[in-house]
Design a protein around this nucleic acid. Structure first.
Lengths: 210, 210
DNA sequence: ACTATAATTGAGCAAGTGTTCAATCAGTGT
DNA sequence: ACACTGATTGAACACTTGCTCAATTATAGT
C-alpha cells in the first residue's frame, strides 16, 4: 500500500511508483493555490495530476495530506526564490527589494494567484483545519525569519537604521508584502503598485541611509 | 412567493414576513465572515438564522444572493463605524487612527474573524463567482474613497504632507490595514500590532506635521 | 516461466451539497 | 365567519463530496 517518494531498495523490489512525486505536488499546489482548499475538489485534483483516487490516497492519505505537502512545497520554493535574489544582488537590501518586486510581478501571467498561497490559506482556513492553518502560519514565520537575517546584515552594513530590531523590521516588511499583494487584487495598476513598493523601501524604517 | 424587506400595503394584506430581515442578514454575514463562502453550507446558515430552506430561497434566491446581501451589510456597517469615528474625534486624522485601532482590536473577542470580510472574500473567490468578487472589490473601493475624503481634509487642515494625493494616501492606508489585520492572524501579540499601527501613523506619508 | 509484492485502477459508497415544491399555516379584508 | 393570499415548512431531489477496496497490472528476484 505504501508508496515511497524515492523508491527504496528492499528485500525484493516490485513495481516502483511511476509518477514524479515532486511534479505531482507542484501541480496540486498550483491548483490549491488558485482555487483555495475548500473550492478544490478531489476530482479537480485527479484531473490536473492525472492520478486515480486510489493512488492519490495511497500516496498522500487525504485531501488535507496532499494540501500539507503542497504548502510545504510552496513555502520551500519561496525560500528558494529569496536565496536566488540574494545570489543575484550585491546587498541584502537589494535582495529583499528584488524579492518583493518578483512576488508582486508574479501576480501577472504565470502564477495561479496574485496572492501568497500561505496568506490565502491563513485567510481561508479556521480551527476546523487547525493543523494546516498552523503549518501555514509557521511557514510565514520561517520566511519572516529569513527576512530578519537579511535585515540584520543590512544593519551591519550600515545600509539601514538600527533603531528597530531586525525582527521588527521583518514584521514590517511582511505587513507591506501581504498588504500590497492583496491590494493588487483590487487595483492592479502597475504604476500604483510600483508606488507602494517604492514607499516601502524609501521611507523609514527601511529607507536606505546615504 | 416574493418577500418584501418592509412589508408593503397592497390590495389585500396577508401574513407579513415574521422575521427581521436586517437581523437575519446580520447573522448570516457573521457566519459567512467566520467560515468563508465555500465552507459555509446552507445547512449551517439554516441553523444560525433559524429559517427553513424554502423561506431562505424565497427571500434571497440563492446562497450567492444571501452572500451578496451579507457583503452589502458588512460594507455598510464598516462605513457606519468610520462615520462614528469621525463623530467621536476632532480631526480627520484622529478619526482614521481610531478606525484602524477599532478594526484591529475587533480581532479579539466579538468579531467572527480578525480579518476584514471584504478582504477574505477577495482572497477566497475566483472568477467562478465573478459577481460576488466584483462586489467585494467595489466595496473596498468605496471605503478607500471615504479614506481619501478624510485625508483630503487632513491635508487642508495642514495636518499631513500634501506631496501625495489623497487617493494615493488612501491606497497606502488600505495596504497598511489589510497587511496588519492579516498579519495579526499569524502574530497577534498586542504590543507588536500596536507598533505596526504606530508605524503607519508616525512615519511619512501619514506622519502628523507639527 | 513463475512467484511475490506493491503500485494502480475505477466502480461505488455514505454523507453532504444547493435547491425545489406541494402542502400547510396564519394574518387581512370582507 | 370566511375566503384569499402570501409566508413558511420540510421531505425529497439530483448532484457532488471525500474516500475505500477488491481486482488488476506491472515489475524484480528466483
Amino acid at each position: 500500500m505504501r508508496q515511497s517518494a524515492t523508491p527504496l531498495i528492499e528485500h525484493s523490489m516490485t513495481k516502483p511508483a511511476k509518477f514524479d512525486r515532486e511534479d505531482i505536488i507542484h501541480r496540486a499546489a498550483n491548483l490549491y493555490w488558485e482555487k483555495g482548499f475548500h473550492a478544490t475538489s478531489m476530482r479537480n485534483l485527479q484531473e490536473v495530476i492525472d492520478m486515480r483516487p486510489g493512488s492519490i490516497y495511497a500516496a498522500f492519505g487525504s485531501k488535507e495530506g496532499l494540501f500539507k505537502e503542497a504548502l510545504d512545497h510552496y513555502a520551500q520554493s519561496g525560500v528558494d526564490v529569496l536565496d536566488d535574489c540574494v545570489a543575484k544582488t550585491d546587498s541584502p537590501l537589494a535582495a529583499l527589494k528584488l524579492f518583493v518586486e518578483k512576488a508582486i510581478a508574479g501576480q501577472k501571467t504565470p502564477a495561479p494567484s496574485g496572492m501568497c498561497m500561505l496568506v490565502k490559506t491563513v485567510a481561508e482556513l479556521t480551527e476546523e483545519n487547525a493543523d494546516l492553518l498552523a503549518q501555514a502560519k509557521q511557514s510565514l514565520s520561517v520566511v519572516e525569519g529569513e527576512f530578519a537575517k537579511l535585515l540584520a546584515q543590512a544593519q551591519a552594513n550600515g545600509d539601514i537604521d538600527t533603531e528597530q530590531t531586525p525582527q521588527a523590521l521583518a514584521r514590517f516588511l511582511q505587513v507591506q508584502i501581504i498588504g500590497i499583494r492583496t491590494y493588487a487584487h483590487v487595483n492592479s495598476d502597475d504604476q500604483t503598485i510600483g508606488q507602494l513598493v517604492n514607499a516601502t523601501f524609501n521611507n523609514p524604517p527601511l529607507a536606505k541611509l546615504k
